[in-house]
């Protein structure tokens, strides 16, 4: 199994197995996630992409009967041993497939995380909110209604708000699970542009069912199938000449 070889590895996964009860959803995954790169996770529904993403910030801990073995290191630290979960979730932020803004104002949505992490001064919060909304390419669209309900903006705006909310806690890694699956092409492109500009500061993993999107935004692509990491390589290589027949069949739409 290839692990890829980039200069700086942000997350090193080795021999990762995950069971939901008796069902093995991830099978001995080895992967080096390169720092400041966008890594796309692709594969058919149910192959374990979301499960894998969630192991990286221990969201699976909440699931009953889940059993995880193997090693996941963030900057060399074992996240299932050495790292406090709250601290981990601050460092590894997640954006879900469906935008899930809190039922409060736009401002409060973004300020929520920093407040929990102890930031109280209004001036500081104002600055974080503006900075995060700008980084998520949403500021211009909402700056005149920051104190209106977040539920009153469009789906694409909500998704970018959720990204802003995640950025506000200054994570190092951004996990995005199909962040554009419900968005129109313009909002989609905004989020894609965002990935490109954010990768200077963040390491990004994105699950997508859209091959063209994976091609547009990612540096590396990982193809999962039935819990196996079948192929992991540069996006250019995967979309031009995959090494594995299974990958070829999947990305050319000839599966099943």
């Amino acid at each position: 199994m290839q692990t890829g070889s980039d200069r700086k590895v942000k997350i090193a996964v080795r021999g990762l197995d995950l069971f939901y009860g008796d069902f093995q959803a991830l099978k001995s995954i080895d992967m080096d996630v390169a720092a400041n790169k966008v890594t796309a996770l692709i594969g058919p529904s149910g192959c374990g992409k979301s499960t894998f993403l969630k192991t990286l910030n221990r969201m699976n801990d909440l699931v009953e009967n889940v059993r995880i073995t193997g090693s996941v290191q963030l900057d060399g630290e074992e996240i299932y041993k050495d790292v406090d979960v709250v601290d981990l979730r601050k460092r590894v932020g997640m954006v879900f497939q469906k935008p899930n803004p809190f039922p409060m104002s736009i401002y409060e949505n973004v300020a929520y995380g920093p407040k929990i992490h102890g930031i109280r001064k209004k001036a500081d919060l104002d600055e974080i909110v503006e900075h995060s909304l700008r980084a998520a390419a949403l500021w211009d669209e909402v700056c005149d209604r920051l104190h209106k309900s977040a539920l009153g903006i469009s789906g694409g705006q909500q998704q970018r708000l959720c990204i802003a909310r995640t950025l506000a806690t200054e994570p190092e890694v951004l996990l995005m699970d199909e962040p554009t699956s419900a968005l129109d092409p313009i909002s989609t492109l905004k989020i894609e542009d965002l990935c490109e500009s954010l990768k200077q500061d963040y390491t990004i993993l994105i699950v997508t069912h859209n091959m063209q999107q994976a091609g547009r935004i990612s540096d590396k692509t990982a193809f999962f199938l039935l819990g196996d990491l079948v192929e992991f390589g540069s996006t250019e290589q995967i979309f031009n000449k995959p090494k594995e027949m299974k990958t070829e069949r999947y990305i050319t739409g000839r599966f099943g």
């Binding site: 091959m211 979309f239 031009n240 000449k241 995959p242 990958t247 070829e248 990305i251 050319t252």
Partner: peptide, 9 residues
């Protein structure tokens, strides 16, 4: 058709 891999080549 946005071909990829073998189709693209």
């Amino acid at each position: 058709q946005q071909p990829l891999a073998g189709d693209l080549r």
